[in-house]
Amino acid sequence: MNEIAAIPVFVKVAEAGGFAAAARQLGLTNSAVSKRISKLEAHLGTQLFHRTTRSISLTEAGEVYFAHAVQALGSAREAEDAVTSLQGKPVGQLRVCAPVSFGILHIAPLMARFLQNHPGISLDLVMDDRVVDLVDSGFDMAIRAGKLEDSSLVSRRLTDVRSVIVASPNYLKAHESIKLPEDLLHHNCLHYTYSRDPMEWVFHGPLGKQKVKTKGSLGINNSQALCTALVDGLGVGRLPTFVASPHIKSGRLTTLLSDYSLPEQALYAVFPERRHIPAKVRALTEYLVDCIGGDVAYWDN
């Protein structure tokens, strides 16, 4: 039966392309991973990987075994989901990936009550602005905004994400007024670099769609850090309201170009497609819908 336990390790090594990468993702040592693969090969009586000092690749036997091993893992996961769905109360470890700023501001504060309501769940919350492969990285769920490119994922809409153009009162006192989108060409515009269009800002106004190619002295890959620079008076920026709203309400930031709207995005909970959605995934999804969801998110009220 030890050989069956080695199947997830074998699949992870094949997908990760190496023993070290698989060990990191599995939380094991390199030697532990190597030993499990060696024992599996000894049991099967054949070599599953071609090994060199720089890389590994599947042998012909490894390719055949991999195809069946992936199906076996999928069936085992389906069986686990089916059983846990009958238990009534969601249980097990739940791995969730969320964008850094949104996770800190709006996911983490909700977790204490969720875990108190579901004592059978243990939560592993990873904050990362990169779009990761949920299956390869072992995540049960991710929070994502915008167009969903991966058609193999199931999604549940949580709410809309709105953005605004903002600057601090001190910055606005010291610089030319901004009444039209093209006025931004004369200002120091700060950019969130993980955006698909960090420099080009799109507006919808009285004359229709308008694009402005902005420029400035700071690009940064975290919207909270960008917000800090804007509050400090460095320039003008485009921020999601889930970051900007408290600073607008307090007067630390002023909204600009209110006659123009910026493109909106939807915020989703996404998870790998399965025949039975795990009860723990359903529980967190419904909880987030209740706490965040609706056509207007709570931070925009």
Rank of each mutant, 00 (worst) to 15 (best):
A266M: 14
H204E: 02
M1T: 13
L44Q: 00
N170F: 02
S85H: 03
L110D: 15
D81K: 02
S57R: 11
I165Y: 10
P272Y: 09
E149W: 12
H106V: 11
V296R: 08
G219P: 01
A72I: 15
L153I: 13
E80Y: 05
A69D: 04
Y260E: 08
A32S: 15
K249V: 12
L267A: 14
H187K: 00
H118Q: 08
L28W: 05
M199D: 09
P109I: 09
H191L: 06
N221S: 05
A283V: 13
S177R: 12
C291F: 12
L26C: 10
E63I: 07
G219T: 00
L110K: 10
T84A: 14
R77T: 03
A79G: 08
H43P: 04
Y287T: 08
I178L: 04
F139K: 03
H43E: 07
P272N: 09
S195Q: 01
D136V: 14
K215S: 06
A79S: 09
A108P: 00
E41Q: 13
Y260A: 06
A82Q: 02
G233S: 01
D140I: 14
R54T: 15
R252V: 09
V296N: 12
G251P: 03
A167R: 05
E41Y: 10
V154M: 10
Q93C: 03
A112P: 09
G293V: 10
L185K: 08
S31A: 11
D259E: 13
V202W: 02
D197G: 01
A266N: 15
D183N: 01
E63G: 00
I178R: 06
N2S: 12
I248S: 09
P169F: 02
F10V: 06
L48G: 11
K89D: 04
T241P: 08
S31Q: 07
Y287K: 00
F242C: 09
P272V: 07
V236T: 11
P119E: 09
V96I: 14
V13P: 05
R156V: 10
G293W: 13
R252D: 14
S38E: 00
A108C: 05
G18P: 00
Q210T: 04
I165A: 07
M127P: 14
M199V: 04
S168M: 02
F139P: 02
L190I: 01
Y298W: 13
F10H: 03
W201T: 04
D290A: 14
I104K: 06
E149V: 12
A22E: 10
Q71Y: 12
Q87H: 07
Y298T: 08
A244E: 06
L226N: 00
L180I: 03
C97V: 05
P169E: 04
V236Q: 11
D150W: 05
I277Y: 03
R144C: 01
V161A: 09
H106P: 13
R130K: 06
H276M: 11
G293E: 14
L58W: 03
I107S: 09
S168G: 00
K249E: 09
K249M: 07
R274T: 11
A98D: 05
L256Y: 06
P109D: 07
V164L: 06
K147D: 11
I4Q: 12
G62E: 01
A98T: 13
S258R: 15
N301L: 11
P119I: 01
R282L: 15
E60W: 08
S57P: 05
P119S: 04
L73Y: 07
E78V: 04
S151D: 00
Q71K: 15
G92Q: 04
V132G: 02
